[in-house]
Nucleic acid binder design. Sequence first.
DNA 1: CTTGACCTTCCTATCATGGGAAACCCCACC
DNA 2: GGTGGGGTTTCCCATGATAGGAAGGTCAAG
Lengths: 162, 162
Amino acid sequence: MNIGQAAKVSGVSAKMLRYYESVGLLPAAGRTEAGYRVYSERDVGTLRFVRRARDLGLPLERIKQLIGLWQDEDRASADVKRLATEHAAELRAKITELTRMCEALERMADACHGDDRPECPILDEIAEGEHCSPGRHDADRKGGLRPAAAGKRPFSSFQGVL
Amino acid sequence: MNIGQAAKVSGVSAKMLRYYESVGLLPAAGRTEAGYRVYSERDVGTLRFVRRARDLGLPLERIKQLIGLWQDEDRASADVKRLATEHAAELRAKITELTRMCEALERMADACHGDDRPECPILDEIAEGEHCSPGRHDADRKGGLRPAAAGKRPFSSFQGVL
DNA sequence: CTTGACCTTCCTATCATGGGAAACCCCACC
DNA sequence: GGTGGGGTTTCCCATGATAGGAAGGTCAAG
């Protein structure tokens, strides 16, 4: 079976099949004399495994480990479970963070009348920060240069997520 | 104020300040004769605005629009509200997706005894797929090449999120 | 005048994925 | 025997937001 067929039946794009092979997630596929990749039914099983693992949000590095365990007859299920629970914990953390953002946005949006007038509590809150007293900006003071918001960015950034 | 100071008091790294400027999110900062960027208190206000918007998970493109509205005395708050609610909806969708993944993982992990033995329902489920009847693989049939799982990858991929 | 801390630009990497170009291959049809 | 269309190959580039580092210029304190 050619790469296109394998992609169709596994649900992994041909592009990704080549990429997964190049980064060592998948072993190099067989080749025809002309250099075309050839996939067996067994290969397709592995591809489906990878696709389902991706659907669970697992990063490729972890999927690599998971495949190793899958193909290891002597594995301890504890190792698989640990991998799964670790990832679930990371997902929970991410969900918590996104929920915090989402609720803040929804709260602000609720407070905004949303009409033709320029007054907007959303902009006010983003501009002033919910922590500062609204009357006076700390930055107006002379010497004070405290690292804003404890300095440590929550490296929240979830960009590329959507 | 130099870029380092501005970074410290705004909570945006110097690296990001240069980047934001390069992509047009921020106007080009003033320069000393030697070429050092110079930031005013007013600039710092904008930087804080950007940081808080980032904390809400807004992509730079939307922050750009938001800054435009912020600085537009004639804005309609409806535009701000729309921007916020659109983003909130995207966050909700993302949260839903991550929750689905997380619950699936936790369910599988719960079913796994997690000891020294190799039997593992997590691997079983990922390998067989929860939709397929466990006794027989469709791929074993000869002609059937239906695009797996409706073909359309849920472009779930949330990589780079953590 | 030296030293160290700061600044500049430019390049690289991340992570998973898609898009496209140039070249090659395969098969069916005429 | 051609030829055309669709598959395949490799290679490069882009995304989005961020960090890391190198090479070189600047500034201020000692």
